[in-house]
């Protein structure tokens, strides 16, 4: 009898710090158990550039909110190619730390960082290159841009929380995080 097909998992970090990915690696040797059940598509761990390039993905996991045009593009790409999309961590769930700029004017922030701040080389200007993705006026959580199926809050969610959530999901049951595993901080 054939072993069941491995589920394809893709991950990405948008306006995040990769802390959630580090926390994902904190499931430690359980990664080996997980790899019995899944294989990775696009993630920072593989070198696959486009999600779903090798066929549909079962589970997409995204860390970080949406702060620029490229984030929107990647997020929509994930949504189009993943059966289940998971919002991982505080920034993807409610904007998190990057969203604390939301009450400030974007032009003022860019000016403060690139032209009026002390210690800048003379002639420093706000970067303006077609290669750079445009910054959005506000940082948004993922669910304001695409439909999200599951949320794992936390800054970052602990390895144990991620493990519990994923194993519940892979077992085909509604994921639960009890006291001590669910965290917003």
């Amino acid at each position: 009898m054939n072993a069941p097909r491995k589920l394809k998992v893709a991950t990405a970090s948008l306006a995040g710090c990769f802390g959630c990915h580090m926390s994902f690696l904190d499931i430690d040797e359980r990664l080996l158990d997980l790899l019995e059940l899944i294989e990775f598509d696009r993630t920072p761990l593989t070198d696959i550039k486009h999600v779903g390039a090798n066929g549909p993905v079962d589970i997409g996991i995204i860390e970080g909110g949406v702060c620029n045009a490229e984030n929107v593009h990647v997020l929509r790409d994930f949504r189009a190619n993943c059966k289940i999309l998971i919002s991982l961590g505080a920034c993807s769930v409610n904007g998190g730390l990057p969203a604390q700029r939301n009450h400030l004017d974007l032009r003022d922030i860019l000016k403060a960082v690139y032209s009026t701040d002390t210690g800048l080389a003379s002639g420093t200007q706000v970067p303006n290159d077609a290669e750079l993705p445009l910054t959005l006026n506000m940082v948004h959580p993922l669910h304001e841009v695409v439909k999200i199926d599951y949320f794992i809050p936390g800054c970052p969610p602990s390895g144990d929380a991620i493990w519990k959530f994923l194993t519940d999901l892979l077992a085909g049951q509604t994921p639960h995080l009890g006291h001590g595993l669910i965290h917003y901080d």
């Binding site: 919002s87 505080a90 769930v93 409610n94 998190g96 730390l97 969203a99 604390q100 669910h143 999200i148 599951y150 949320f151 794992i152 809050p153 800054c155 639960h176 995080l177 006291h179 669910i182 965290h183 917003y184 901080d185």
Partner: peptide, 24 residues
């Protein structure tokens, strides 16, 4: 924004969110 709030862990709004499993 709980990660940058000193009340985190002592906050009733947060504690109720945990209690009721508010993920989002």
């Amino acid at each position: 924004f709980c990660p940058s709030c000193e009340k985190s862990g002592n906050c009733q709004l947060q504690a109720l969110g945990y209690e009721l499993e508010v993920f989002t």
